[in-house]
Simulated assay, not measured.
Amino acid sequence: MEHRIGNRMYHGLMYSIVVLFAVFCVTPFLLVLSSSFTSEESILQHGYNIFPREFDLSAYRVLFLDAGRLIEAYKISIIVTVIGTIASLAITAMLAYPLSLKRFKLRKALNVYTLITILINGGIVPWYIVCVKYLGLQDNLLALIVPYLCMAWNVFLLRSFFQTIPEEISESAKIDGAGEFRIFLSIIVPLAKPALATIGLFISLMYWNDWWLGLTLLNKVELQPLQLLLRTIQSNVQFIATSAQGAEIIRATGGRLPSEGIKMAICIVTIGPIVFLYPFIQRYFIKGLTIGAVKG
């Protein structure tokens, strides 16, 4: 009886801690969401609150002054994220797998070569010259995809997971007549789903949140990804005062642009796709967090 009571108290304590931690995690998001619907004067006077003191849509009106351009930027970011994630994950996996094989003769040399890309950086100017002059990555969607196709850090993470898969499995398949590529697709990839899902999430976040490639490699405004467009809006929010629509918003908000509200509205607009992506890979994500932690 005492043992059951002790177990109930222990589980109750653990559940309480988890719930409390969840509240701590959700609270910042609620503050951002509430602030995006709060008037600028209320934020400046009372600060951020979970519930809006004065409900106001001025921040979203400013943000959607050019809704067509915002939608196009959304489309570009989605296309780049989807294509970039699939291509980058495939290249990363195909490089990480041979690096994990003891029977691969060039394993050490390729490991050192991959490590050098982390330790030594040529600098922004040589990087820019290579991308623009030699690879032609300027004013096209490839400029937003190719530079991030293979990140050495992701390669080593995935290699660590591949090393936990016994080589005897691939060797037995090889005896049965399967080639390396068939072994990789039919055996290794299914076993590595948790790791691939985790690395895929990291890559998706990198592509979705990136604005640097657009800033350095794009001159065409119509090719700007969402993050770069929103960064431009936030950095130049004062120029809205010169437009007729901006003047109407200023009059409606009492003569003040909702600069704080715009920052919060930008967070809400950009977070959507990632929030929808996570539930699909949640069952793999927890297991994938232990990549390389235990070797069997």
Rank of each mutant, 00 (worst) to 15 (best):
E2C: 07
I5D: 05
I5P: 04
G6I: 05
M9Q: 14
M9C: 14
M9D: 11
H11C: 08
L13M: 14
L13T: 13
M14W: 14
Y15Q: 11
S16W: 05
V18N: 08
V19C: 12
F21V: 12
A22F: 01
V23W: 09
F24G: 07
V26I: 15
T27E: 02
L30F: 07
L33P: 01
S35G: 11
I43G: 03
H46V: 02
Y48W: 13
R53P: 02
E54M: 08
D56Q: 06
S58D: 05
F64C: 00
D66P: 01
A67Q: 01
R69S: 00
L70S: 05
E72L: 09
E72D: 05
V80A: 09
S88I: 01
A93N: 11
A93V: 04
L95T: 15
P98N: 07
L99K: 06
K102W: 05
R103T: 12
A109G: 14
L110R: 10
T114N: 06
T114I: 09
L115D: 10
T117E: 06
I118Y: 08
I120F: 09
N121S: 14
N121I: 00
G123P: 04
G123S: 05
I124L: 15
Y128A: 03
V130I: 14
V132G: 06
Q138C: 03
N140H: 05
L144A: 12
Y148S: 15
M151L: 15
V155E: 07
F156L: 02
L157H: 02
L157N: 10
E168V: 09
E168W: 08
S170T: 15
S172Q: 14
R182H: 11
L185M: 11
I188Y: 13
V189W: 01
V189Q: 11
V189S: 09
L191D: 13
A192R: 12
A192W: 10
A197T: 08
G200N: 13
L205W: 03
W208I: 01
W212V: 10
W212M: 12
W212D: 07
L215G: 00
T216V: 14
L218I: 02
Q224K: 08
Q227Y: 03
T242G: 12
S243R: 00
G246M: 05
G246K: 04
A247H: 01
R251Y: 13
G254Q: 06
G261Y: 00
K263M: 11
C267D: 04
I268Q: 00
T270R: 06
G272E: 01
I274Y: 05
I274G: 04
V275R: 04
F276Y: 02
F276K: 00
P279L: 09
P279I: 10
K287Q: 15
G288W: 02
T290A: 13
I291M: 13
G292L: 02
A293T: 03
A293M: 12
K295Y: 03
K295N: 11
G296V: 05
